[in-house]
Structures are given as C-alpha cells and as structure tokens.
Nucleic acid binder design. Sequence first.
DNA 1: TTTATTCGGAAACGATCATTCCCTATTATC
DNA 2: GATAATAGGGAATGATCGTTTCCGAATAAA
Lengths: 184, 184
Amino acid sequence: MDTALDRALRVFRERGYHATSIGDLTAAMRLATGSVYKAFRDKHAVFLAAFERYTALRQEQTRSAASRGSNGRERLRHVLLSYAEQSQGIEGRRGCLVVGSAVELSALDPVVGARVNAQLKTNESFIAGLIREGQADGSIPGHVEPDDTARLMICITQGMRVVGKARLALDGERLAGVAMKLLA
Amino acid sequence: MDTALDRALRVFRERGYHATSIGDLTAAMRLATGSVYKAFRDKHAVFLAAFERYTALRQEQTRSAASRGSNGRERLRHVLLSYAEQSQGIEGRRGCLVVGSAVELSALDPVVGARVNAQLKTNESFIAGLIREGQADGSIPGHVEPDDTARLMICITQGMRVVGKARLALDGERLAGVAMKLLA
DNA sequence: TTTATTCGGAAACGATCATTCCCTATTATC
DNA sequence: GATAATAGGGAATGATCGTTTCCGAATAAA
C-alpha cells in the first residue's frame, strides 16, 4: 500500500495533478482501475494521500538534515544544503509536490490550498525556531529578525524547487554560503 | 488581438495550462471556438503566444522598477520590491506564468521548457548586471559574488510567487530589507 | 470439499476534452 | 451594385477523461 502510494507520488510530482490520468496512475502503481477505486474514493483522494505521505517524508528528511548541525546556525545551513540538493538533478526535475500543488491547485482547490498553506507555515516556523535556537546558543546575532528571515528563507527554498524544475544548476555549497549572509 | 491575448493570459495564469479548457479560453477571450482556431493553430499555440506576451510585459515592469533606483544597489532593491508587490494580494493569487510553466510544463513540454529556462537566465543576468553596476558605482561591495548572488535572488523572486499563490502575506519592505543583506 | 468473502482486472459508461467543419455576416474589389 | 474573400460563430466529431460495474481468482471459514 505504501509502495503503491510512493509510485503514485512520483507520477504526481512529475506530471502534476491535471496531467496525470487514471491510466498513468494505474500504470505507475501496477494496479488496475478497479483496484485503485477500491482503495480510494477518487483521483482527488489518491492525490491527498500522496500529498500527506510526501510532506511526512520530506519533513523527516529536513529534520534529519538539521540534526547534522551542532548549533542553530549550522542546523540552518544543513537545511538549506538539503533543499538545494533535493532541488537538483533528477530529483529536482521530479519536483516538489508542495510547490507543484501551490502553483497548480492552491487557487482552484480549497482543500489542497489549505494543506499547502499549512505545510508552508510549518516549514516556516521550523526555520524560525532554528534561528531562535541559534540566537540562544550564540551562533546567530540577536538583531536578526527570526520571522522575516524565516519567510525569506521559505521563499528561497521554494524558489530553489522552481529553478531546479527548470533545469538550472544549483550549487548547494555556494548558494547556502551566500544565503547565510542573511544571518549576519 | 492583444486584448484577447491578455484575457487568455489571465486564465492561463489562474488555472494553469491543463486545467484551462478551450471553453474557458473562449469565454475569457469573448471569442467562439472557431475564431480561436482561426487565429491560432491549437491550444498550445495560444499558450505560447500568451507566454511571450507575459514575459514581454513583465520584463518591461521589472526594468521600469529598476529605473526608479539611483544606483545599482537601489535599483536592485526596487526590483525586489516590485516582485514582492506582484506576488501579493489578488495579483499574487493570479500567479506568475513563468513559475507556473516551470512547475507544470517544464518537464513535459520541451518547447515551453526551453522558453522558461531562457527567461530565467535572462532575469538572472539582468540581476547580475545590476549587481555589477552597483559594484562599479560603489553602492555594492566588490567582494559580492555577482553570479551566485543573482542565482539566489532568482530563487527568492520565484519563491515569492509560489508563496504568494499560497496566500501567505509578503511584506515587501521587510522582505527586501532582509534580502539586501546579501549585498553586504 | 464446499462455501463465502475479499481482492484485483477489464470492459463499459457518460461527460468532457481538443479539434474540425460549415454556415453567416461583413468588408473589400471590380 | 454584384461578387469574391474573409472573419467570426456554433454545431458536430473522435478521442480521452474519471468513474462505475461486473467478472474471475484466490483465500479463509465451515
């Protein structure tokens, strides 16, 4: 079941919602039409389940990246590096389901829109938390505005996914290096 | 003709490519089905024409915003402010056709993919040019890396459009203020 | 072994899609 | 003033969409 969802996830990431047909879905999931509709109410429900799984997986990856740092500043740097890496190459071309949903569905589908909005806010407050950690442990100056900086960093990470989809190279070390100026 | 294209443009920005039917298009353009197919080869051609018009219009807006600054640094600040403003409110929810095309079509449609890629590179070198101007006129320190900084700023601007679609508020002055640290 | 029950597969359904065709005005030409 | 040419409007068309329904196989219960 989770493996089938992972396969659906991949198709949605590559093709978006509207461009993936049930045929694409069944081919990727190695399931027949009837079986998909036995497991899910409709295409929208498959998408929502895939979205939920994606955010859970990505959240885990991001926390794991953060944990590689020894203080707030370093944790933040590793988060940026992780985003840059994920946005590049074959994984980058596959795309981010949150960004894809924000652009393709946020304005048309209130349910998806709410989930995208919630996910962005979660990510943002996670970053703001890392900034405050850094200020507490002395690795980030106290005059840095956590909320504004976090929102800008969300723009950076989401922007990386867009740029990565368009096949522009993203040198994680250099980009993260420049971005760390925001913590000066 | 240009007004019809503007109307088509708006629909594509709001709904993306796959979710806009010919019916949506004819309703927005106030034209019958046959008339649309007399003016354009197919839906894809309408989209390409709308895309071209959009990038021309946006480029003009961005250059105009840049011209409001008196030196390289200030020009860059006005560009960021312009992007933040465009990404907000009703205009932000309408979305950016470049970002939308990058996410929805870049991987599926080579023609659109190439245009998106070219547009991003144009924007990026415009920003890099402003940075170099600033370094020449003394408003930006010489140790700033123009290319890396420009690429990161492209991530910021594209990210703003994503965040704006998801209805997160973007305070232009504050965001631009934080982003200007990248020029320190 | 027999009988339910569950699960996956494939054909069939109406709806909607992009596209084409034909008709009707309107303009320009002779 | 008649006629050719063109531009726009709307119905018809085949294809594809999401969804439903029905059928067969496999498993568990009796």
